[in-house]
Each structure stands twice: as C-alpha cells, then as structure tokens.
Amino acid sequence: MNEFVQEIQARFEVLWSNPQRPDLMQIGVRQVNALPLLTWLKSNTGYFILNHFSAVDWIEDGEFQLTYLLTDYAARRSLMVCVRIDRAAPTAESVHHLWPEAVTYEQEMFEMFGISFPGSPRQGVDLLLEGWEDIPPMRRDFDTAAFAEEAFGFRPGRTHTNPRDRVAIAFGQKGFLHDH
C-alpha cells in the first residue's frame, strides 16, 4: 500500500497516512485538493467505487472531518481519504457528479451536520426529519437527551436514589482538608 501512497504523494500533498490494516490505508489531505484527488482516483486508478462517505464532528478542533472510502475490488483494498473542513461555515465541493449515491450522502450530511455542498441536487430537502427547527442534530453541541426531555417528556412517577449519596447521607461523609 505504501508505494500507492507515494504515487498519490507525487501528485497531491498527503498530510498524514496510516496503514490501519493490510487492506485499509488511511490518508489525510487538504480540502483544496480533495476533489482533484478523488477525480484522479476515480478516473485512472482501481479505486473507483465510493463505498462510504460521512462526516465526523471534531468540535474541540472546530473542524468537521469528511471521510471518503474508496474500494478497489480487483485488488481487494480500500483507501480512506480524510479531509478536514472548517466547522464555522462548513462547505465542501459536491462529488455527486462522480458518484450518484453521493447525492443522498450529501443530503443527509446537510440535514444532520449542516455541511452544505453547493450544487448538490437535493440539498435542503428533508430526508430523515420533518419540520426540524433546532440546530442539525448530529452536531456534538446538540444535546439529544435534554431535547427529548423537553420536547416529549418522560412518564412521571420514577424516583432514583444514588447509592453514593445515600451512603454519604446515612454515614455523614465529610472531608477535613476543605471546609465543605
């Protein structure tokens, strides 16, 4: 796999590469040469099937990571291309002209993460949710439990006592290095 990475390195700048498994190589590229790399991979290498395309929310670094997984069924190997895009205004080039199933991936990512793919045919059309007014739910800063409690509410009548508190109350647990 490494010589294949060299081949890519020759054309595009590979930020990092990690041979996760003998049949899975992961590389990281800059956003600017993501689409050229994918187009090159599709047109003149064995990796022309887009197996999977999704986003990961690295909220601490303020970035989304787009992951394209291309598989070469003849050589029985996969290549995972990871691209970091800015989280504040997340936009990326659409690849639906290379792979038709990318339309659905992009539609879902716009709805779930808010990553816009200008030119993607079905961007903005509801895929999974209907009448959703909150921030895109798959973002890390969306708290689904609080939303569920507030929007739907749970069945009342359940009480829970934390064993730790019950022991502390029953036996008066105090610390002497600090004034509680």
């Binding site: 359940r158 934390n162 064993p163 019950r166 022991v167 036996f171």
Partner: peptide
Amino acid sequence: IDMVVNRDATKGDTGLRPMVDYG
C-alpha cells in the same frame, strides 16, 4: 433501572433495591 429505598442502610448494604421500568 432506578435504585429505590427498600430497607435502611447498614454497613454492607445501601438498603436500595433496583426497580425495573419496563417502559
């Protein structure tokens, strides 16, 4: 599963018992 009070706490037992909510 909620822990609900069932008996008073002793040295080796918090006196709570699990209540299972089948919802």
